[in-house]
């Protein structure tokens, strides 16, 4: 490979990124028009521009209901889905990089179990202290508390290996899962709410959710890109990366906390949605190679597209709304098996 060919590779990545960005924007507009009330993409754009810029002339002649449906009902949900998809994919890149394991995902360290435990607790105990945000806040607190316990369990003498992290995550996750089962057993009418929450949903999302998720995810993406090259080098193992001038222990901790915070925000906004964080980095690595700086950006875009597609299918295409977490697992699971088999046969370079 020469400088010219590496230049060409960068150009290819840049055009792929542009393509995905345009696809994401197109998909947002298109899916906003889909649903019980159909709205043409042109009308969607006119409503959005009218609301944002304030030029009332643009939406003249459109049903005034459109403005409400687009801006207050559909767009918050759609944007939340896209941002959470991006966030989960970025977390996947981070966790796979830190744990040196292409099969890790944002939930490997028990983050999801912690969030689920917190949410279940809030639902069972009927906590209404923070209004509608009680459950998300408890989920967030559960995720962070779990992370702290896992970090404590896996750190020894200032060292922290990928294996001890995964083991600690599995142990803590198992304990929490038992706790959740117990709460489901104890709960009466709330058991349906717990199950509903655990399966994830974007129904009834507000602009607050969008902003919160956007803030966390863009911060996470920025950190991932900033430490991208360090993360590449860390895939050589701690002893090698130290000798190459990377402060492995510090970078690992920063990225671990960043990834967990983003995952915690995503889970508390949307419930538990699996497989996005696992599959998207895999797919992108197959397309553009394992360089984490590119991978983080492209995975964010692709994750947004994928989760938005899945949410649109369950919201507007299927006759009954299937919980989004179930849908992503049903589509993602078999797809992952396929990738896994291909890898085993040595065809893919994941």
């Amino acid at each position: 490979m020469t400088l010219q060919s590496s230049h060409n590779a960068s150009k290819r990545v840049a055009s792929l990124a542009l393509l995905l960005l345009l696809a994401l924007i197109g998909l947002v507009v298109l899916s906003t028009g889909l649903g019980f009330i159909r709205i043409s993409p042109g009308a969607v754009l006119r409503v959005i521009v009218e609301r944002v810029v304030g030029d009332t002339g643009l939406a003249a002649g459109l049903d005034p209901l459109f403005s409400y449906v687009v801006m207050d009902v559909r767009l918050p949900r759609i944007l939340t889905a896209a941002v959470v998809g991006a966030g989960l994919a970025v977390c996947g890149v981070l966790f796979q990089g830190i744990l040196l394991n292409p099969l890790a995902d944002p939930y490997t360290l028990g983050i999801s179990s912690g969030a689920a435990f917190g949410a279940s607790l809030a639902l069972v105990a009927n906590v209404t202290l923070f209004g509608v945000y009680s459950v998300p806040l408890f989920a967030f607190a559960g995720a962070i508390a779990t992370l702290l316990v896992v970090l404590y369990l896996s750190s020894f003498d200032g060292q922290m290996s990928a294996n001890t992290l995964i083991l600690s995550g599995v142990i803590v996750g198992a304990i929490l899962a038992a706790g959740i089962s117990f709460m489901k057993y104890m709960a009466d009418e709330q058991v349906a709410m717990i199950i509903y929450w655990l399966m994830g949903s974007f129904a009834a999302k507000s602009w607050t959710d969008v902003l919160l998720a956007l803030l966390a995810v863009s911060a996470g993406l920025a950190v991932a890109v900033f430490y991208g090259r360090d993360l590449n080098i860390m895939s050589l193992g701690g002893r090698s990366s130290d000798s190459l001038g990377v402060e492995t222990a510090r970078v690992r901790k920063i990225l671990l906390i960043t990834g967990s915070l983003v995952a915690a925000v995503c889970v508390s906004v949307s419930g538990i949605i699996g497989f996005i964080g696992l599959i998207v980095p895999h797919l992108m690595r197959f397309l553009i190679g394992p360089d984490n700086r590119r991978l983080a950006v492209l995975s964010a875009l692709a994750g947004g597209i994928l989760l938005l597609c899945a949410d649109t299918v369950t919201r507007a295409v299927l006759p009954v709304e299937v919980p989004i977490g179930v849908l992503t697992a049903l589509i993602g699971g078999p797809f992952f098996c396929y990738i896994f088999r291909r890898r085993q046969r040595g065809i893919a370079h994941g």
Binding site: R229, S235, G245, R285
Partner: peptide, 17 residues
Amino acid sequence: IHFAFTVLEVVLMGRHP
């Protein structure tokens, strides 16, 4: 190494510092 870096990419990591 668990990720499919090319040989040149790995050797170039030596230039990181």
